[in-house]
Design a protein around this nucleic acid. Sequence first.
DNA 1: GCCGTTTTCGGCCCGACTGTTTTCAGTCG
Length: 572
Amino acid sequence: MKNRELSEIFEKIGDILEFKGDSSFRVNAYRKAARVLQDLTEDIEIIHQEGRLRSIPGVGEGIAKKIAEYLETGKMTKYEEVRKDIPDDLIRLLGIPGMGPKTTALVYKKLGIENIEDLEKAVQEGRLRDLPGLGAKKEENILRGIKLLREAGKRIPLGVALPLVERVVADLQERAQVNQIYPAGSLRRRKETVGDIDILTTGTDGGRIIEAFTSSPGVRDVLARGETKGSIIAEGGIQVDLRVVPQNSYGSALQYFTGSKAHNIHLREIAKSRGMKISEYGIFRGEERLGGEREEDIYSILGLSYIPPELREDRGEIEAAQEGKIPQLVEGEQIKGDLHVHSRWSDGTATIRELALRAREMDYEYIAICDHSQSLKFAGGVSLEDMAKKLEEIERVNREVEGVRTLSGTEVDIKTDGSLDYPDELLERLDLVVAAVHTGFKQPEELITRRIVAALENPNVDIIAHPTGRLISSREGYSLDLGEVFSVAAETGTALEINAYYDRLDLSDVNCRRAQEQGVKLSIGTDAHHIDQLWMMKLGVAVARRGWVGPAQLLNTWPLERLLAWLKTRGG
DNA sequence: GCCGTTTTCGGCCCGACTGTTTTCAGTCG
């Protein structure tokens, strides 16, 4: 699958052309193509083979040719051409806040600056202030930008940002006179990582609200404190902005600050083509204000059905809304259980009884205890002898804790040769079998794919856990032919997991969408190793929603009886 | 470079802020 490679190349072409001062519209065309390719649910090679490149939005004659050239020859002439006389490091200067293409080109041409170190030195020596259009203030800004890029520039996982924001919001509701208050931005869209956090509120006394915000506990640094906007660095180094907006434009401001940028641009194009205009202050026709108090106004006035924030990435949701075909997304309340948790029997910290009790508190109908299998020594894999005792304990808990069904399960290791880490006789006795790769990450794509396909084809296996093996903060997944995995999973009826642990979120949103389109069943499991990690279910729900997933193909929305009936039709 | 219920040519999102300016260019979200 070359989607990502191509996306990166077009992104770079866009950067270089922008630096060279090419038409901003051409630059944007490359960037749009890059984004669309990145989000594509289909394999670009297949689209090319079937002659459908031009049907991709944002791909016209020129870009289609370039994609074809790259897929056929492994090279793209245009890319080779534009980057020929441009040092790679130079383009990285564009990543410094305050350094745009014009300034970068200026310092490159006049001072021969080619990288961040050169730039830093030149600023310290005060050599930038003599250039036309630059001054001492600009030098200061650039220095701050360099510092910012080095220190921060890092996105934090949704699972870290979400609890933080919940605390900030609760604190403000308690201490300040706020009416409505709601987080916007990528956090509201539930993107898997978040850059900074925007919170929107309405209230009569902006100054007091901002004062309360900047003096709340957990504030490490205050960057700005005005009447309508406050900006802080919270513990953990993440920037949080609070904006106080007028009541009558709360909806349009929420819409605007939620983004994504691509979604908003597309929306504004539609507004413009109908003689209207959208901004954070409202939706207008000429001088006439048509709406803005409620977010729904913006969409309904444009003739669109409401678009849930998780879909707002310009991945086809606007077209769907025009046709009234926004899918019914899974809701948190529809989740009836957790299908992957660990207990003390392997590397978890909770007893089975504790897990069952907590599941009941959460109004679940079931919870599946899926400890590691025997050969995963480093994770306390459960031996065959212990498994017998564990099954007895589960039976006991089921007798004692009523109102929730504790399912006997395992997260059986798919060994490097593709066999499973427990004999089939044991797997058959369990309620639910989750299988996963934990070793041999470096194996070639073909081999890993074959291991997973073998597991999919084993009738005892119900779910494949964290199918790609990626870790958000530290590890790319193993090489895997996901297309093949999806097509086999659709055939065998085996479900693929959306692992909701905050650092995994695997499958990812786009991959969920692909899987669902191909008829694959999905399952959310928190992979919780601690009782206080069960809340991460909502992260899994967020990924599912971002992947356009509805309740139909999602096991966790099924009531216990239906789930058991399905499990019965399978081995194990 | 893309795209078409005004268009196959002539458009291409919107507003704010900053710093260097004397009416605006560059950058950002």
